[in-house]
Design a protein around this nucleic acid. Structure first.
Length: 154
DNA sequence: CGGCTTTGACCGGCGC
DNA sequence: GCGCCGGTCAAAGCCG
């Protein structure tokens, strides 16, 4: 879990605590975008890349220090993990601003924005169409503040 | 009363 | 230009 790609830009112990909601082996790092191009993978392509690789991600980038740096530059990150709850507390306050049924999925997609003032980070959450015990969460942007639940040990 | 959800409307990009 | 599709707005309602 020390390779959690968001840890460098958003140190957040509470997110790691959320691991009790799913097995670590069920945690799948999906996609990382440096923002240099706009051809973000469609949701179908993301789901496809998961079912194809069945747990091992030889074709996908792994969170190295190199692309973690890229995350800091732009950041668009998708995760897929087993969870009964759609929204697990990742330490930030989110305000929902939309819900949409997307094509090729029977499940709705929910749109959230970080409710902290001036912070423009967005997040979208949807269930995996083929295995509804999985949840796909996509983060976009970098918080201009740290999590209100980060504790400092001095 | 203030902040958040809910929900349909609205809008912009893209393909035909 | 038109309609589909995904993303966002905002009015109304809900709840503390």
């Amino acid at each position: 879990m020390e390779n959690f790609p968001y840890s460098s830009s958003n140190p957040n112990p509470n997110f790691i605590d959320a691991s009790e909601n799913f097995e670590l082996s069920d945690y799948n790092y999906l996609f990382l975008d440096d923002g240099s191009s706009d051809d973000f993978l469609s949701q179908n392509e993301i789901v496809q890349s998961v079912s194809d690789s069945s747990g091992s991600y030889s074709n996908n980038p792994t969170p190295t220090s190199h692309n973690m740096q890229k995350v800091d530059a732009k950041s668009r990150v998708a995760f897929r993990f087993r969870s009964e709850l759609e929204v697990l507390d990742d330490g930030f306050k989110w305000r929902k601003y939309g819900k949409k049924m997307v094509k090729n999925s029977s499940n709705p997609r929910n749109y959230y924005k970080c409710s902290s003032g001036g912070c423009n980070v967005k997040k979208r959450v949807e269930r995996d169409n083929e295995d509804s015990s999985y949840v796909i969460t996509t983060y976009e942007g970098i918080h201009n503040h740290e999590s209100p639940y980060v504790f400092h040990y001095t």
